[in-house]
């Protein structure tokens, strides 16, 4: 099984090649996000933005998806009035000057999966800047708490409290099962890789098998506010996606957190890659 394979590698700190593979596809995804974001201009629709992401990645060899690319513009970045999951899919909403946007994609490349979220704004908006800057505390909080091996549900609640303290609404609550993160894995490459409601069937299969195994052992591949997430972090790769919303403006990042069963706290959990657009942005601000 693919999932068993990665588990073995990630758990043991594993073949560096595997992590390199994941890092490569995550970088590719962020490159795609930056390339597409640079082409966004007033009048582009969400559907067009999603297609731009798809085409860009297809040209570079991506054939399968954990989920197909999403694009949210304007107050849809904060999931205002989202009632059913179908509302996540790209619409004909057009981008306007000053609007925030989020690009979210999860390509599978050479059998490695990534899942990223890229927040931007067409023009300058001090409020959007503030949201992006405030995400930094969440990235640090999540890592430190995972290293302390606190239960995922408790970490979720701590992130929630930090958001409330910052004055924001928790918008990852709107995702299916309200997840702040989910496990991702290697996926076997096949000639035909269909998607189901935007999700790649191969990846869904992996997630489902994790869910079945986890259910037996008392853990879940979904990091949610519910009881089934009341367990310490499970070794493997987690796509973490805290999502802030504030009165019609939303911002998120999404990237892979590597959890291992190492005794050394530094090695027990770390972000797969620290050279990502949002992290660079924070560091530039510091200088």
């Amino acid at each position: 099984m693919a999932s068993a394979m990665t588990k073995a590698s990630a758990v043991t700190g594993g073949p560096a090649a595997d992590l390199r593979g994941f890092r490569e596809v995550q970088r590719l995804s962020y490159e795609c996000a930056e390339a597409v974001a640079a082409q966004l201009k007033p009048g582009v629709t969400e559907r067009e933005a999603a297609k731009m992401q798809r085409d860009w990645l297809y040209e570079r060899g991506v054939r399968d998806w954990f989920h197909r690319p999403f694009a949210w513009f304007g107050d849809r970045t904060a999931f205002v009035d989202f009632k059913i999951p179908l509302q996540f899919f790209p619409t004909n909403r057009r981008l306007e000057a000053g609007m925030p946007f989020i690009l979210d994609m999860a390509p599978v490349y050479k059998g490695y999966t990534s899942d990223i979220g890229y927040s931007g704004c067409l023009g300058l908006d001090p409020l959007h800047d503030k949201l992006l800057a405030d995400l930094r505390a969440h990235r640090e909080l999540i890592l430190s708490q995972v290293r302390e091996r606190r239960s995922l549900r408790e970490i979720y609640e701590d992130v929630d409290r930090l958001m409330v303290r910052q004055g924001y609404a928790n918008r990852h609550r709107a995702y299916p099962f309200g997840v702040i993160a989910h496990k991702i894995d290697r996926v076997r490459e096949r000639r035909w890789s269909p998607t189901l409601f935007g999700f790649g069937t191969q990846s869904l299969k992996g997630l489902a098998s994790d869910a079945v195994h986890g259910h037996r052992d008392g853990w879940s591949p979904l990091w949610s506010p519910y009881k089934f997430s009341d367990h310490p972090p499970r070794p493997g790769l987690w796509a973490v996606e805290p999502h802030l919303g504030f009165r019609g403006t939303g911002a998120k990042f999404e990237e892979i957190l590597v959890v291992t069963d190492s005794k050394d706290p530094e090695q027990s959990a770390f972000w797969l890659d620290d050279d990502l657009p949002h992290v660079r942005r924070w560091n530039e601000r510091d200088v």
């Binding site: 001090p126 409020l127 503030k130 004055g167």
Partner: peptide, 13 residues
Amino acid sequence: EGAARTAEMSRLI
């Protein structure tokens, strides 16, 4: 601290 934060965000919106 919370009051200051509310004021800060208020100015932004």
